[in-house]
Write a protein that binds this DNA or RNA. Structure first.
Lengths: 121, 121
DNA sequence: TTATGGCTTGATGGAAACATAAAGTCATCA
DNA sequence: TGATGACTTTATGTTTCCATCAAGCCATAA
């Protein structure tokens, strides 16, 4: 498709990728798919408690970005991650969040220590 | 259950992180900071050609998310990545994009091959 | 003190994303 | 065949994001 043949500047492609990950429902779906390789829409509905059309909208976003693959078997639809690297990216994000949280806690402790050592304000 | 491993609140935090990366200008800034540890606003303006206020808005987003740190020295402001893991995340995203592009090209080739082998339509 | 340079913040109209509901598709069952 | 179940797509009002411009710091120079 034209998307693949005429890619936008790399920064925009990358931004689009991140944008497509910028919603809690879509993160949840990708986490489910990271935990078990194939998940049906019915299972996702059960796991998330969402309304079908709502979930489906978000699945469409992930499909358009080629992050997941849909496979219809009979009347059910099964999803898988299009690439293992999707799970790696989520893992990378998780690590970053941990690092940020730790740094913030250290900063907080440091601020308290500083304030204490020169008399609280 | 996946619930225990990936609690819902964390998904929202993660989504916020990705959302903050979902803009070409912010990606560009983070890549500049990945390439050289400290970059002044003046240098970013030169590198991007943006209007000062526009860049500043995006820097504010990155600061709020604790992805970058601002350090004022005299009248200039210097930025650094708040965590090395930010650069790792970008690298991870780059790899994913490459994988996706390669998969799409393979699919395209396969489609062409299939069509050819049964007579083009 | 006023002025200037370097950035940030606030305000605003327009574009994109979101949640919900209605309608549509496709496969299976009666 | 018609009906039902499992999803997806379309349509909608609402919220959020974005680019632009005006105004507001803060530090240095005059």
């Amino acid at each position: 498709m034209a998307d693949a043949l005429f890619p936008a500047p790399l920064n925009e492609v990358k931004a689009e990728l991140f944008k497509s990950l910028g919603h809690p429902v879509r993160i949840r779906v990708l986490e489910l798919l990271s935990a078990s390789p194939t998940v049906s829409v019915a299972e996702m509905l059960a796991a998330t408690g969402l309304e079908a059309s709502h979930l489906s909208q978000h699945l469409a976003v992930l499909r358009r970005q080629n992050l997941v693959i849909a496979d219809r078997r009979g009347s059910q639809v099964f999803y898988t991650l299009a690439q293992p690297a999707v799970a790696d990216l989520l893992k990378s994000a998780r690590k970053l969040l941990v690092d940020i949280l730790q740094a913030n806690q250290l900063n907080l402790q440091q601020s308290v220590a500083d304030a204490t050592s020169r008399g609280a304000e």
